[in-house]
């Protein structure tokens, strides 16, 4: 089973005092899949992601990420995943080259590997001429693509993207999704959250969290059919605000 699954969660639960933030969620993400993890603010997405990335210990249930157990092997999980958030997690006062070297080092790449990766990233993003430019001075779209490349620097099995496209212009947003597609085509698993409902359509499958539970899970086509909706926006609204 775990041979085809990048993530498995079974009855995964997190309680803070008497508040249940994540309420016994179960799902699987297949290897190479683009999995959209949606939900309203406060539905429990962030808490669930923190458990899956080994940052928070669950209160109950089971989960494995890249084949490792979230209770016992959280350090192994961190080594085998990439993570990128809306805030990009790059060091603004380091150059492009220094950021790549820093993250390569953090993930334990050897110096010749870091050198190789640096060239590879600079070429694929056509940033060769800007390698020594300070990241804080780069346009938002460049930073975003660089952050994605850096999150992939150690060839992780899974990349978690937490609202990666917030605030960027429509052309950059689309170029970014093409990077996601290309990466998924290499067999890497993508776990992504977004508030843009058109982006939900680009995912292979989607789960929608409501009040700590997974209220729906399926491909965009299946979900639209199940909720008699023409867009994912309608599906989302009918789930997040029932009545």
């Amino acid at each position: 089973m775990s041979a085809e699954n990048a993530i498995t969660a079974h009855q995964l639960t997190k309680r803070f005092g008497d508040f249940t933030a994540v309420d016994a969620i179960s799902f699987e993400v297949k290897k190479g899949e683009i999995f959209g993890f949606l939900g309203a603010n406060g539905a429990g997405k962030t808490t669930a992601i923190r458990m899956l990335t080994g940052l928070n210990r669950p209160t109950g249930g089971e989960a494995t990420v890249a084949g490792f157990d979230v209770y016992r092997q959280s350090e192994k999980i961190k080594e085998n995943i990439g993570y990128m958030s809306q805030k990009f997690s790059l060091y603004e006062d380091l150059s492009i080259r220094q950021n790549i070297r820093f993250y390569g080092g953090i993930y334990g790449l050897r110096s010749n590997e870091i050198k190789e990766k640096t060239e590879q990233i600079l070429t694929s993003l056509t940033l060769e001429a800007y390698a020594d430019k300070i990241v804080g001075e780069l346009p938002l779209g460049w930073k975003q693509r660089l952050a994605f490349a850096v999150a992939n620097v150690h060839d992780p099995a899974i990349v978690f993207l937490d609202e990666p496209t917030g605030g960027v212009d429509p052309a950059t947003r689309r170029r970014f999704w093409e990077m996601i597609y290309a990466t998924a085509n290499l067999g890497r698993t993508i776990f992504v959250t977004t508030h843009y409902m058109d982006e939900a359509e680009y995912c292979d499958r989607i789960s929608i969290m409501v009040d700590g539970k997974i209220a729906a899970l399926g491909s965009p086509g299946e979900l639209k059919e199940r909720f008699s909706a023409t867009t994912m926006d309608e599906v989302f609204v009918s789930l997040a605000r029932p009545k």
């Binding site: 939900g39 309203a40 603010n41 809306q86 609202e163 917030g166 605030g167 508030h195 409902m197 926006d233 989302f236 609204v237 997040a240 605000r241």
Partner: peptide, 8 residues
């Protein structure tokens, strides 16, 4: 910004 589709 950063607010879900329904709250927006």
């Amino acid at each position: 910004t950063g607010v879900d589709a329904v709250s927006r």
